[in-house]
């Protein structure tokens, strides 16, 4: 039977050291990784900010849709209602449509667009705010609706006005900018 006491004491000390070294190395690697990812995240902060702006702009599109829906619902004359709708409302061919790529269009306080509401007060650092404008493009014929009334007149209720909606949102950092567009039939 072997006597454990025959093993040299020095050998046991080396294993401990090696273990400690390994532990330290592992810790260094882990710490290094941590610091590296933070750095990378810092480098990609515009991406995160952009996501935030994207969501805000999408919300603004929805808000624009609701706003124009409320404005024209029941209106006998959609074209004139939009033409006289004030800031942010335009009629294709009859209005000067703002340039979506021009910074002036979206600048805070611009009379060309309408500011979207922002209820998340804690996140109001969005650099240039959120805004939108709408363009009346004309009418489409709604499916499933009578083309004529019973009296044989044109059924205006079946003529569905079509709009192009534009919305822009900035990010937390200055310079982050997202512009979205969609078309909708109301």
């Amino acid at each position: 039977m072997r006597n454990f006491s025959q093993f040299p004491t020095r050998q046991r000390g080396a294993a401990l050291v090696v273990s400690l070294i390994m532990l330290v190395l592992a810790s260094l690697v882990a710490a290094g990784g941590f610091f590296l990812s933070t750095e990378e995240a810092r480098g990609a902060s515009s991406w995160s900010d952009r996501q935030r702006a994207l969501f805000a702009a999408e919300g603004a599109l929805k808000e624009a849709e609701e706003a124009v829906r409320n404005k024209i619902t029941g209106a006998a004359n959609v074209r004139q209602t939009v033409l006289s709708g004030g800031n942010g409302y335009y009629v294709r061919h009859a209005s000067v449509i703002p340039d979506v790529s021009a910074e002036a269009t979206w600048k805070s306080g611009s009379a060309l667009v309408l500011p979207a509401t922002q209820t998340m007060k804690a996140d109001t650092r969005l650099a240039d705010g959120v805004s939108y404008f709408v363009v009346f493009e004309g009418y489409g014929q709604a499916t499933g609706n009578a083309l004529l009334t019973g009296s044989g007149n044109v059924n205006e209720a079946a003529k569905k006005p079509r709009f192009t909606l534009y919305a822009k949102a900035g990010g937390i950092k200055k310079g982050t900018l997202v512009v979205l567009t969609t078309s909708t039939e109301l």
Binding site: L54, E58, L61, K62, E65, E66, R69, V100, S101, L165, Y166, L177, V178, V179, L180, T181, T182, T184
Partner: peptide, 16 residues
């Protein structure tokens, strides 16, 4: 009620 579904949008930012 009017549809509450998400709108399909297109991003124009990249065209600036």
């Amino acid at each position: 009620e009017p549809s509450k579904k998400r709108l399909n949008w297109r991003e124009l930012t990249n065209f600036f």
